[in-house]
Design a protein around this nucleic acid. Structure first.
Lengths: 126, 126
DNA sequence: CTGTATCCATAGCGATACTG
DNA sequence: CAGTATCGCTATGGATACAG
């Protein structure tokens, strides 16, 4: 409990989880952050097509749900680093089978993995 | 491949899968159909709050994606039965860990399971 | 560099009525 | 019974400009 934006409105764990990862870019953000922490600008470049406003909004929601950690350094120029929390890591692992299903059934097994431990490489390095 | 509504637009298996289960009611439909086939009206009653139009639309998409099978019986009164395909069953299984994550992290482990084989009971019978 | 503010486009969803 | 048609709302997301 304590997280999720519609407390008490879920009929099973799946739709609760869907609420957390339902944003258009969230699984991509998860995918990128799983490899290593990113700052805002790097994240924006790593998630092609997202605008600043939307990226900021999705990060806020993921932060509110305890998935990502936001570390603000009081420097100049400003620096903010985003990383996965422990809960974010477990969510990423729970997403593994779904990613495998998608690769096998939707992509023909041709594309990069989704950060399942032991399968992720340097694809998202950039 | 051959399924998914944005062929070639995915960066990893996860967002491809998200496209398939992204509708507001789709995971619920999956949950209900996993237990046993349902006809349209029964499905509508089993998924509380959905309207006919939206239910029909989501079923069409799931059918186009090869997740559900639509069996039309030429009787009077008309009868149509919806069931999961083999691909739908594997998708349901791939959703298992995510549902477990949601129950543990969002619901406190209090709610019914999502049809993970061996865990589903009569909760969705209704 | 890391955001917020403003405005706008659209997709998805919902209610109701109607048809084969 | 099993849908389709029509209408419209609202939430999400996108583009651009501006701020700390």
């Amino acid at each position: 409990m304590a997280i999720g934006r519609r407390p008490g409105a879920y009929v099973c764990g799946i739709d609760a989880a869907m609420d957390v990862i339902g944003g258009k870019w969230k699984v991509l953000i998860l995918w990128v952050l799983h490899e290593r922490p990113h700052r805002f600008g790097a994240l924006r470049r790593a998630v092609p097509g997202v605008t600043e406003k939307v990226l900021a909004a999705q990060l806020r929601e993921l932060e509110a749900d305890g998935i990502v950690h936001r570390e603000e350094y009081d420097e100049v120029p400003p620096r903010v680093e985003y990383s996965l929390t422990a809960r974010g890591e477990t969510l990423n692992e729970a997403l593994g089978p779904l990613g495998a299903w998608g690769r096998e059934n939707l992509l023909g097994g041709a594309t990069a993995s989704h950060g399942v431990p032991g399968l992720v490489g340097q694809e998202a390095a950039r």
